[in-house]
């Protein structure tokens, strides 16, 4: 099963407050627990994710930052079951969710998966052949075999919550990017997933639409939804995060339970370097 060395130190964190406790923390009380996760593509020389371990307690907003190619999206995709993993395991509520498979095969999705993770992608992924309501209602009716009338009532409540009740009969192509992402959030939420995954959901949006989507996620965070967020919106990350992780080259470089402190005074050089790319100094402009 796990072909990686079990004696590795669990977390690749570099002596940051909170991170050192990792190996001692058990999966109990954690909504999601990732242990020694290794993800490597067949013909790649180095793993995309190299021995990643962390816990996400129920209700926590877990924000993952990092440069392009650091493995952030891949990390979410392994949790969502979209990528086979080559080592380690992922558990949810103490129950095994994913583990290394022989021959790198993914098992097919099943109805029980639907209540575990919900995911919203960067690219607009609403089903173009369904209306807004059709998109939201399809999975609970088809996969979870729930009663159509109650599903519809809940779908309308969710649309109300994200401010799109009047668009329930619209087709995806009639919506703006921000509206599509809000519908995609409803579509995931209606299955009552234990953990929500957001993979750069605002990266393809016009600046003015970013806000409407992030406000929905913020409201969701306040409602106690456990979630993992990959984002490049630093101001948003700072506002929403309970826990911040910086990924680089497939490893956790730094993490913190104090987002404000992380953003203002990162400990590692890599984090300082990364955060510096988001700030501009007027002094750089030659007068």
């Amino acid at each position: 099963m796990t072909d990686i060395n079990a004696t590795t130190t669990g977390s690749a964190s570099l002596g940051v407050a909170g991170a050192a406790e990792h190996p001692a923390v058990t999966a109990q009380g954690a909504a999601l627990s990732v242990r020694h996760l290794v993800k490597q593509y067949d013909n790649a020389s180095a793993p995309v994710l190299n021995d990643i371990s962390f816990d996400v307690p129920a209700g926590q907003v877990f924000v993952i930052l990092g440069p392009s190619g650091s493995g952030k999206s891949t990390l979410l995709r392994t949790i969502a079951g979209l990528e086979p993993i080559q080592g380690g395991e992922i558990t949810m509520g103490g129950e095994l969710l994913r583990q290394a498979q022989s021959a790198g095969k993914l098992r097919s999705a099943s109805a029980s998966d639907s209540t575990k993770v919900g995911m919203v992608f960067q690219s607009y992924d609403l089903f173009p052949n369904k209306t807004v309501l059709g998109n939201i209602m399809l999975a609970p009716v088809l996969v979870q075999k729930r009663d159509k009338a109650s599903v519809q009532a809940e779908a309308l409540r969710l649309l109300e919550r994200v401010g799109l009740a009047d668009r329930k009969d619209a087709w995806p192509h009639e919506l703006s990017g921000g509206q599509r992402q809000r519908v995609a959030i409803c579509r995931a939420l209606i299955e009552h997933p234990q953990v929500m995954l957001f993979d750069e959901v605002t990266a393809a949006l016009d600046p003015e639409m970013v806000r409407e989507v992030l406000d929905v996620i913020l409201e969701l965070a306040n409602s106690g939804q456990t979630m993992l967020i990959v984002t490049h919106e630093m101001a948003f990350a700072r506002a929403v995060a309970d826990h911040v992780v910086l990924l680089a080259n497939g490893s956790i470089v730094e993490e913190s339970d104090h987002p404000q402190e992380f953003f203002d005074h990162p400990h590692t050089e890599r984090a300082q370097q990364f955060l510096a790319t988001f700030t501009y100094d007027r002094g750089q402009r030659q007068s």
Binding site: A80, A109, G118, M119, D125, A139, V143, A184
Partner: peptide, 22 residues
Amino acid sequence: PRVQLESARVLGFSPVQTFLHV
């Protein structure tokens, strides 16, 4: 698009359901 199939998968659709409905 690939992401259509991936969304369906995360929503818990079986391969047959994905094929028929997506």
